[in-house]
């Protein structure tokens, strides 16, 4: 498959943005400037970008607790994201969601999710909307290897097959379910999904082109009424389960090797298909990313907190009763 320079630049920009966004928030978090829990996505960037590159705002994703990459790949603005991670009033969710519940309805981003396995039924519902209203849209659930064991995932797989929903189960096998090595061999997760009666495939999650090709096919299948697809993208987790987890449970030598082998950015730039993406363009893209991060971090840290009355707003669209007064 051929890629235009425009597509290559876009894919690179998104992967690099995810990488640098996270490195920047990691640094701010370590300095105590960002609240809550954050979960790093490093070395899985090619999965989010390959998955979302062919989507429009009428396609949906349901994300996970490790969701910054999914947000950026789906088109969420860095400013709104940064404000949200800083839990400020003008954040995407007015500071009430934070990193683990960030969402952007205008972009079809139906939320990060702090319940492991919480997203797939919701994504199935979005796929049902697309099918019922015949929008041509598709819906994708991101699912970790840990979440793959949840009953909600099995229920969503089954429903998607029974109703032939335009849905993609995008498994991200990063080898670790929180602090525990997932004992399933590579490919087992895709095999399980396939057993429900949908096409399933295993790809190298650090290879943008492999992920993108698999997702393009799955998205086309969904748009054309061909039902759901499962993709298991394998890429070892780089950092700990959450920021601050020293990963004492991982073998150092293996981790070092996985970190180097699993970095999607050098893979991408070394691929002959990116030959048209020259050093100058890459440098320009990088510079723009760093400038935007500087701007948004400065803005977010200085921005206003939600005012006290915001505690009570947006529980319901309408509700008349003392409980909400």
């Amino acid at each position: 498959m051929d890629y235009s320079l425009n597509e290559l630049t876009r894919a690179y920009r998104l992967m690099k943005t995810i990488r640098e966004f996270e490195e920047r928030i990691r640094s701010e978090y370590q300095q105590g400037k960002l609240p809550g829990f954050i979960h790093m996505y490093r070395n899985q960037e090619a999965i989010a970008v390959g998955a979302c590159l062919d989507m429009t705002n009428d396609d949906y994703i349901a994300s996970t607790h490790r969701g910054h990459g999914h947000c950026i790949a789906k088109g969420c603005e860095l400013e709104g994201m940064m404000l949200e991670l800083a839990c400020k009033q003008d954040g995407l969710c007015n500071g009430k969601g934070g990193s683990m519940h960030i969402a952007d309805m205008t972009k079809g981003m139906l939320g990060a999710n702090a319940i492991v396995g919480g997203g797939p039924p919701i994504a199935a519902g979005a796929a049902l909307t697309a099918k019922t209203l015949q929008t041509g849209g598709v819906s994708m659930a991101f699912i970790g290897d840990g979440a793959s064991d949840q009953g909600t995932v099995a229920e969503a797989l089954n429903l998607a097959v029974v109703l032939q929903l335009p849905m993609i189960f995008m498994y991200e096998n990063n080898f670790y379910a929180e602090f525990t090595r997932n004992p399933k061999p590579e490919g087992r997760i895709a095999e399980r999904a396939g057993a429900f009666g949908m096409p399933s495939v295993v790809v190298d999650g650090s290879d943008f082109f492999a992920v993108h090709a698999a997702c393009r096919e799955a998205i086309e299948r969904g748009r054309n009424g061909g039902g759901p697809t499962a993709i298991e993208a394998v890429s070892a987790r780089y950092y700990g389960h959450f920021e601050g987890d020293p990963q004492a449970y991982r073998d150092e030598a293996e981790l070092r090797a996985q970190r180097e082998a699993g970095d999607p950015l050098p893979h991408f730039l070394a691929d002959p298909r990116t030959a048209s993406l020259d050093v100058k363009t890459v440098a320009e893209v990088d510079a723009a990313i760093f400038a935007e991060l500087d701007r948004t971090v400065e803005l977010a840290l200085a921005a206003a907190d939600p005012t006290p009355e915001k505690l009570y707003t947006d529980v319901y669209v309408n509700y008349e009763g003392r409980a909400m007064q």
Binding site: M105, P120, P121, I122, G125, A126, L128, T129
Partner: peptide, 14 residues
């Protein structure tokens, strides 16, 4: 899946 998908469908226009 019934309750979750109904929620996801409601969130997106049904």
């Amino acid at each position: 899946a019934i309750v979750g998908a109904a929620g996801g469908a409601a969130l997106t226009g049904l």
